[in-house]
C-alpha cells in the first residue's frame, strides 16, 4: 500500500473515527472466522472438560454447562455466525435488491405484481414466518439461511425499488435512454452505481439483523442445529445460568454486540462518505 493511500485512509479514519473503529472490528472478525481452526485452542463441540469452570488461565472464557471451552466456541461461532449472516444477506439483499431494481426500472404490470408479492411477504410477522419455515424445513444451517433470506428479500426489494423509481426519472437516465442506450446498459452504468450506497448500508445493517434473528430462533428452539457453536445457541444456554455462570452469556453476548456494532458503524460511515449531501458537519 502506498504512502498516499495510507494517508487517505488516515484522513478517512480521522473524519469517521466510529467508522474506522467499525472497520477494525469487522476486519478482526473476518480474520477470526477464517483462522478459526488455528485460533481455537480446543474442539468446539467436544464436552471434554469440567462444566461451569470460571475463566482462568487454562480456559480464558471459562467452560459451559457441558464442559466445552467457551473461547473455542466463540471463535468457531464467529465463523458460523458470519457465514449465516453473509450468505443470507448476500442472497436476500442482492437478489431482493436486483428484483426491486429491475421491476422498478421497467415498471408496469410486472412491477405492480411483484409489489403485491412483497406486500404478502411483508404482511406476515417475520418471526412467525421464520418459525414455521424452520419447523417445516427442519433445523440445519442452510435452512436458517433460507429462512433469513426470505425475511430479507422483500425489505431489500422495496427499499431499492423506491430508490430506483426516483433514479429512473433523473435527467441522466432520461438522456441515456433517449440516445437509444440498451436497457441493460442503462441499468448497469447509470442505475446500479447510484444504488451502491443504499445497498452497502442494507448489507451491513442486515448482517447484524440476521445474527440477532438467528439467536432468537435458537431461543425458540428452532435455530441452527444446537450442537453447532452458534452465538445465539450459546447465549440461549447462558440465559439458563445467568447467576452461577455469567461467563456463559457474557462472552457470546459480547461477540454478538461487537459484531453488530462494527457492522453498523461501518455501514453508517459508508453512507456518510458516499452520500454527498451528508458530507461535513453541522453548523
Amino acid at each position: 500500500m502506498t504512502r498516499g493511500r495510507l494517508r487517505t485512509l488516515g484522513r478517512l479514519a480521522a473524519r469517521q473515527p466510529l467508522g474506522a473503529a467499525g472497520a477494525a472490528i469487522v476486519l478482526a472478525l473476518v480474520v477470526t472466522a477464517i483462522f478459526a481452526p488455528q485460533l481455537a485452542p480446543h474442539d468446539a463441540k467436544e464436552a471434554a472438560f469440567a462444566p461451569y469452570l470460571p475463566p482462568s488461565a487454562g480456559f480464558p472464557l471459562g467452560t459451559d454447562h457441558l464442559g466445552r471451552d467457551i473461547l473455542s466456541r466463540v471463535i468457531w461461532g464467529a465463523r458460523l455466525s458470519l457465514y449465516i449472516g453473509l450468505v443470507s444477506v448476500t442472497f436476500g439483499v442482492t437478489l431482493g435488491g436486483l428484483w426491486g431494481v429491475i421491476t422498478a426500472y421497467f415498471g408496469g404490470v410486472a412491477d405492480s405484481a411483484s409489489q403485491r408479492v412483497v406486500d404478502v411477504l411483508m404482511s406476515l410477522p417475520p418471526i412467525i414466518l421464520a418459525l414455521s419455515l424452520m419447523a417445516a424445513l427442519g433445523q440445519s444451517v442452510n435452512n436458517v439461511i433460507i429462512a433469513l433470506t426470505l425475511l430479507l428479500t422483500p425489505t431489500a426489494s422495496r427499499t431499492l425499488r423506491s430508490l430506483v423509481l426516483s433514479i429512473r426519472e433523473s435527467a441522466y437516465v432520461e438522456a441515456a435512454r433517449s440516445v437509444g442506450c440498451p436497457h441493460w446498459r442503462v441499468i448497469a452504468l447509470h442505475v446500479l452505481p447510484n444504488t451502491f450506497a443504499t445497498y452497502t448500508v442494507l448489507v451491513t445493517v442486515n448482517i447484524s439483523y440476521a445474527i440477532v434473528v438467528e439467536a432468537s430462533l435458537s431461543f425458540l428452539g428452532l435455530g441452527a442445529p444446537p450442537d453447532e457453536p452458534s452465538w445465539g445457541a450459546m447465549l440461549t444456554a447462558g440465559t439458563q445460568a445467568l447467576e452461577p455462570a455469567p461467563w456463559m452469556f457474557l462472552f457470546p453476548g459480547l461477540a454478538i454486540s461487537l459484531t453488530v456494532f462494527g457492522l453498523n458503524l461501518l455501514g453508517d460511515a459508508i453512507r456518510d462518505l458516499t452520500d454527498p449531501r451528508l458530507r461535513g458537519g453541522l453548523g
Binding site: 463441540k45 467436544e46 464436552a47 454447562h65 457441558l66 433445523q139 428452539g221 428452532l222 444446537p226 450442537d227
Partner: peptide, 15 residues
C-alpha cells in the same frame, strides 16, 4: 427433539 436438556444429552451420546 429440541426440548429441555435432550439436545445436551444427544451431544454426549454422539461422543
Amino acid at each position: 427433539r429440541t426440548v429441555g436438556n435432550y439436545v445436551d444429552r444427544a451431544q454426549l451420546v454422539l461422543a
